[in-house]
């Protein structure tokens, strides 16, 4: 799972990709390749462009009127900004988990079943099976199997975040994006999510954005350091934290920056 340029199948490729909000440049000439079933961590201070980088991949940024992009961004060999791309289908293939677990105001079951239903699944049995499989994969099944009909808001923060993950998994995505998924969670819930991500990266391509260098180190995958829209350095976590090449990376990981 070394991903990147060494012959492994590439899932995501940013090629000279730029993104700006009006006059503010959020990403500048980003070049990055992420392999299939790789767990990639984007690390950087607040405002460095991590969220933009993620939100371009599923075109969630389309709703921002001032947003402009140039260059190309390939997912599985297809330019996601190709006019022929169906955004709805794209978003089913690229799931996203947010900093705030935005649970839908309905039952736990319906939260997970929502995506498949939208995609046209009508069979009750198939939905139940998908819900169970997704909740199990998100390590939530044991905790909620007896209360699937309860409202999702009654879950704890950590459980809600795993529910959000289950909801994404239910769509059978290729890629899962996580934007600061643990920023609102306590350390124990955070560790659970991180373990889960390592587990899930066997089957899915995962891009995790975090402002926390410790998290990047714990997750221990390939890490990209993003600052002011520029991808400063990409390295294995071990190298990044012990032998950073760029002085800015060194400053960030040692806590002198950001």
């Amino acid at each position: 799972m070394q991903g990147g340029g060494d012959g492994v199948f590439r899932m995501i490729r940013y090629s000279d990709f730029n993104y700006s909000y009006g006059a503010v440049c959020a990403l500048r000439s980003l070049n990055l390749e992420i392999g299939k079933n790789e767990l990639f961590t984007v690390m950087g201070p607040t405002g460095s462009g991590k969220t933009t980088m993620l939100r371009c991949l599923n075109r969630l940024n389309d709703v921002v009127p001032s947003g402009r992009h140039s260059g190309s961004l390939y997912l599985d060999g297809v330019d996601v900004y190709d006019p022929r791309v169906d955004v709805t289908v794209l978003r089913r293939r690229v799931g996203m988990v947010f900093a705030l677990p935005a649970v839908l105001p309905t039952s736990i079951f319906e939260n997970v079943a929502y995506g498949p239903r939208r995609a046209g699944e009508r069979s009750k049995a198939a939905l139940s099976e998908t819900v169970e499989r997704s909740l199990t994969a998100a390590a939530l099944w044991e905790e909620v199997k007896d209360r699937l009909g309860e409202r999702a808001e009654t879950l704890s923060g950590g459980q809600q975040q795993r529910l959000a993950l289950a909801r994404v998994l239910a769509l059978g995505p290729d890629v899962i994006l996580l934007d600061e998924p643990t920023s609102g969670l306590d350390p124990i819930s955070t560790l659970r999510i991180e373990d889960l991500l390592r587990e899930l990266s066997r089957q899915y391509t995962i891009v995790l954005a975090t402002h926390n260098p410790q998290q990047a180190a714990r997750v221990g995958s390939r890490v990209g350091f993003l600052m002011l829209g520029e991808l400063v350095e990409v390295a294995e976590a071990g190298d990044m934290f012990t032998r950073p090449r760029d002085p800015r990376t060194e400053a960030f990981v040692s806590g002198r920056l950001g």
Binding site: N58, T88, V89, L100, L104, Y114, G115, A164, L171
Partner: peptide, 14 residues
């Protein structure tokens, strides 16, 4: 909160 709208959009909702 806008995150609720994003949540549905990210699931392929209109």
């Amino acid at each position: 909160p806008g995150s609720y709208r994003d949540g549905v959009a990210a699931l392929g909702g209109t």
